[in-house]
């Protein structure tokens, strides 16, 4: 879905969200809340500039609007795959963004993310996956890597991977698989504004994804392992 349409549906009573390059920023109104909006569009690759710009936007919200909820609108085809960005330390910029999000959370800002188009690996880790509530539109594409590329890297045939992906949510792309594994809290359908309002009312700052994965049957061991480490001598 186009970002303007998403924003209109999220904030039917009004918003000022604008696009600058591939960066989205601004604010919208949702019931009694005014929320900060930070996001990306055009399936952009997140490089050092964009990661830094998002971090700046988060820090600005912390400074100017203490406690204001932050909504990340996620559309990225991953980290920028360039020698130059690697040389400059793109991982450090991504981590900086993640730390800014964590700082916001710990200072009382509810963090919501919505994958409205694409979310791929590195570009997703530093913002969308840092949220208290991570949501996606059902048609959103979420993945580490497509099956064809995965087949090349792992030297397992694409046919076999496709077959395995029917019974296991582990390999194949897709919002539903991430939902089953607890990587997504919820799929948003229909009235997006109501979905957002609901999410804002149920924000939990603790990371409960492994519990969701267990409850939904898509990731059975993570929670067990964490609890066993916790209970060890």
């Amino acid at each position: 879905m186009e970002w303007k349409k998403v924003v209109e549906k999220l904030f039917p009573t009004g918003h000022e969200v604008h696009q600058e390059g591939d960066l989205l920023s601004g604010e919208g109104r949702c019931g009694k809340h005014t929320v900060a909006v930070i996001g990306t569009t055009n399936h952009t690759e997140v490089g050092v500039e964009l990661a830094l710009a998002m971090a700046a936007a988060v820090l600005a919200v912390i400074h100017n609007h203490p406690g204001r909820p932050i909504v990340f609108l996620v559309d990225t085809s991953g980290q920028r795959l360039r020698h130059r960005d690697e040389m400059l330390g793109l991982n450090g910029y991504m981590a900086h963004l993640a730390k800014c999000v964590e700082m916001a959370r710990r200072r009382g800002h509810p963090i919501i993310s919505l994958v409205y188009e694409q979310a791929l690996s590195g570009g997703f880790l530093a913002n969308g996956m840092m949220a208290d509530v991570c949501a996606a539109l059902p048609e959103a594409e979420i993945r580490v890597m497509g099956l064809a590329a995965m087949a090349r890297v792992t030297r397992i045939s694409e046919e076999r991977l496709t077959q395995l992906s029917i019974s296991s949510p582990v390999f194949a792309p897709g919002a539903k698989n991430y939902l089953l594994m607890g990587g997504l809290d919820v799929l948003w359908e229909g009235d997006l504004s109501a979905c957002l309002k609901d999410a804002l009312e149920h924000v939990d700052a603790n990371d409960h994804r492994r519990v969701l994965g267990l409850e939904r049957g898509g990731r059975l061991l993570a929670d067990v392992v964490v609890n066993r480490v916790s209970a060890s001598a």
Binding site: T154, P169, F171, Y178, M181, R209, A222
Partner: peptide, 13 residues
């Protein structure tokens, strides 16, 4: 990559 989605979520955790 053999555990693609589980691995990504794990790194995030």
């Amino acid at each position: 990559l053999q555990e693609a989605n589980a691995g990504l979520i794990a790194v995030s955790e």
